[in-house]
Design a protein around this nucleic acid. Sequence first.
DNA 1: ACCAGTCGTCGTACACCGTACGAGGACTGG
DNA 2: CCAGTCCTCGTACGGTGTACGACGACTGGT
Lengths: 277, 277
Amino acid sequence: MAAPTEPAVEPGGRRRAGQVSPPGCRPSLTPQRLALAAIELADAEGLAAVSMRRLAASLSVGTMTLYYHVRDKDELLDLMWNEFLSGHLLEEIPADWRAALTEIAQRTRQSYQRHPWALNVAVRPTLGPNKLRHLEQYLTVASRITDDPDEQVRIIHSVSDLVVGCTLRELSGQAYRAPIKHTDHRGDGPAPPLEPQPGFDELVTAEELPRLQALRTAGCRLLTPRFEHALGWLLDGIEAAHPGAGRAHPRAVGAPAPDPGLVGMAATTRMLPKKRA
Amino acid sequence: MAAPTEPAVEPGGRRRAGQVSPPGCRPSLTPQRLALAAIELADAEGLAAVSMRRLAASLSVGTMTLYYHVRDKDELLDLMWNEFLSGHLLEEIPADWRAALTEIAQRTRQSYQRHPWALNVAVRPTLGPNKLRHLEQYLTVASRITDDPDEQVRIIHSVSDLVVGCTLRELSGQAYRAPIKHTDHRGDGPAPPLEPQPGFDELVTAEELPRLQALRTAGCRLLTPRFEHALGWLLDGIEAAHPGAGRAHPRAVGAPAPDPGLVGMAATTRMLPKKRA
DNA sequence: ACCAGTCGTCGTACACCGTACGAGGACTGG
DNA sequence: CCAGTCCTCGTACGGTGTACGACGACTGGT
């Protein structure tokens, strides 16, 4: 309507469509730059610090200027999420599928640990280009295990679900706050000051929670970060379900071992790549 | 200082301590009632609708009244979280440990599906009484697998991590929104309207993402809800690592099967409880 | 040279949020 | 009668996301 050239802006849709920028233009403010600045802010002061005003100020720009490059704050979060996901990508994928899945998983975990705010964004993700690239890497590995596409998806999801769940628990656990008291219990004193594992010791009342009590007396910490065990078990299960999958160093599946704990360790150590293609 | 009786309120600590209520008192407004009303609100209109004003209005009460029963909005969220976790508790725990873990996991999933807002709260959980009860149930099962407390904790975490990760993906996936475009790519047209699996088809550019492209042409949906497979694999791995664990119906671990897909199904169907104690 | 139109920036204003502060009512024990 | 506690709540402050429209710089056509 308004523009003589054809594409430009369609009325109901996005604001700027092409933005291919006639050669000599230096777009000092791009959606990506916004996302990067927002990530810097979130890394430094948490996701709550990422407000449009703060972000604009950190870019020495008016608040409403941001809304020219980004439709919503939601879109800004999507861009942050997409940029964040670039940290999940491997440059090179190991040949052994167990090693490869392990490396992708650990890369993902490191990525989350570097940017803890991403967990809050992860609840509402969009399918961005980096997410697809990440899936592509996962799929590259899964296709070595089976040819069934549905099974590939199941494998991918199971691994990435474990990674996300574990990372979420660990990261949120390290921010544990003062606990709430037993509701349907008479209050037992004015509550002592907090321990390093806050609330755990005070809340476990022994007679109602015998197993937790036993755990406590055994000196077992509830917040153990042993992620490799879980992944090892899952990969063991996947491997057992796909005996035909080519592995560099297959082992006898289900071989009995004297100590159960050592079996878990064995599965874990085996995850390290023993050989490159 | 101010109070003649001893406990009452200590200056630096919580506001009300005992609130044991001399018999005939009907405390029409309790923290739990606040939490329940907030949950009702969140179920109906999402977590964003839970503001102190809206909640107070839904209780026909002044906004600041809430702050007598609750220190923060954070404390309100903690109470909601604790109340939400009561939905994870089983009345009866199956005798078979695989069946028990499966039932706890599925109960947890159902709980999240009923209250999707809980995922946003899950990022910052506190150790409330219901969380402890939930852990206690998990531990009851894990203690049948191994006597090593650390290993028990590892087992519990691996299962619950998988559950949380999977649930998070599923729930956030069913709220997929319009995707963002490839950033470092020339824009390819003004983007068609959205499909039921939004963005997936448009973004997969074939030459850069061959595996995803193959998945797409195979008609494979990316958002498959097959949670049982992942849990089956994980439990297979745990079982293989603990051959001594007493099961009602143990099977030959790692027995080769013709079709890998069917092995997964076999592991899945086996999870159903075959016998009660 | 002029001018229409787009690009990019931004000030103001509005509704909503969490909550600090303090006033005030109801009830209770001395 | 009074002091004290429990409970309620109105007002106000600083924060948020963003709709709206004004404003300058640049550009291509005439």
